[in-house]
Design a protein around this nucleic acid. Sequence first.
DNA 1: TCCCGTTACTTTGTCCGACAAACGGGCAAA
DNA 2: TTTGCCCGTTTGTCGGACAAAGTAACGGGA
Lengths: 258, 258
Amino acid sequence: MSDGEPNRFEPIRVAAAYEMVAEAIEREITSGRLKPGDEIGTEAELVRQFGVNRSTVREGIRVLEQSGLVRREAARKLFVCTPHYRNLSSRMSRALVMSEVTFRELYETAMVLELGAIEGAVAKADDGDIAALEDNHARAEAAVDDPVALADLDTKFHALIARASHNRVLELAREPAALLFFPTSEMICRKVAQGGRRMVEAHGQLIDSIRERDLDRARLWMARHVTDWKKGFERTGRSIDEPVERAFDQGMIARLFR
Amino acid sequence: MSDGEPNRFEPIRVAAAYEMVAEAIEREITSGRLKPGDEIGTEAELVRQFGVNRSTVREGIRVLEQSGLVRREAARKLFVCTPHYRNLSSRMSRALVMSEVTFRELYETAMVLELGAIEGAVAKADDGDIAALEDNHARAEAAVDDPVALADLDTKFHALIARASHNRVLELAREPAALLFFPTSEMICRKVAQGGRRMVEAHGQLIDSIRERDLDRARLWMARHVTDWKKGFERTGRSIDEPVERAFDQGMIARLFR
DNA sequence: TCCCGTTACTTTGTCCGACAAACGGGCAAA
DNA sequence: TTTGCCCGTTTGTCGGACAAAGTAACGGGA
């Protein structure tokens, strides 16, 4: 069954009409001729311009809507919008789960990205960022014995750190992993005594480090914080080399979807 | 117009039928009841099961197809598949461009991620990974005066480094930024004499470091390599704080789409 | 003149029925 | 074994239709 001969020809790919509709509109957007906020016509308008059936236009629109380039506000006109990460991130997370990545992969990546984020935060955090972090920290101190609330606050804490780096690329890069990584804190806080206390302590140290622009201290505490996660995880009896399985994700992803 | 009173009710969200179709199938997949490779019925079959019109089913399918959960092979039956990153990554890149992120953001993030990747590669690269890197390096040496080919090889080199880390989460995290970052090497090689030579030299040093499992040397050269990009970029006369604009991306993204 | 409710029009979401093109598979001829 | 043909299935596209929900215009009352 092995084909000894190399393929001489590419498979011919005929584009469906609805794909061409989507691509045509997409080109207008990525080229800048249509800018976020601009209106695209109504479906009837597009039917007229493209000369295809409304069903065809609608399928094309679904594609664009799905990639976040186009939105429909309250059953009204279509307009261009800048796709925001969060939709894309959760899809990325799902792709990771389905690829059966392991907790170790998550852990290693989180270490790299969270260190990067804290570094940026130390360099660039402004008063507003610090205030938001302090607010989060205060709530976490109040919820130190509530694993569910604490895991949620931890997730948000790290998102705030990333936000404080004022680097949207970094913010985006860490999100798919973060979506899977931090929610597991709940499980850890539940099983490990003092887990919550250590977490809150680390958060406090990190905020102080940012306030004092002390990069070394910040890196130290972030590394410690992420390592704590790993130790805690191992103490729950699960192997760090097992895949993040669907069952786990099912609840998580569902919760993440609002 | 400020609403002093807190919202008593959530806005009621009526889900369209095609959305419910998509969500129903999606739930089956994320819950694991439908696994990659499994077949979903034909459109007619779904029409029967959901009791909606075929147009509605088709719109729902477009949504799933777009998120990469479902594929249609050569005008035949629908089946579940694990969404692979590359489609998602390019959409992420587009989101970044449209958010008008700056080259500085790209640079800082690339520094973090590429250092993470080389660290993983030093720890985990196997003979196959090293062979692939050497092959890439050999070609780069041959193309040292061809900016287009060199930029392409540089992009691939870093993807191979990430691959060698055997960490799919990290591989995914770096891709959206990498898609925008490395192609600019072309511009740099074109403008900066010796730019290509330094790049190829760095690649060689990195491969050696991996082979000898010398983490410090690897980090040193990667940092130098990425810093070189920044210096080269500044020497082209553009500001690193200007946004990655559409015009630039237009050609790039187009080239990335196959 | 300004406010507000009613009315008429527009647009979307869904449905129905239809047809050409492409595919898969079976079968016969070369 | 290869080639050509037939036939049922499935997708892509089409035209037309209608209810619901939005928008805009209109007209009456203060």
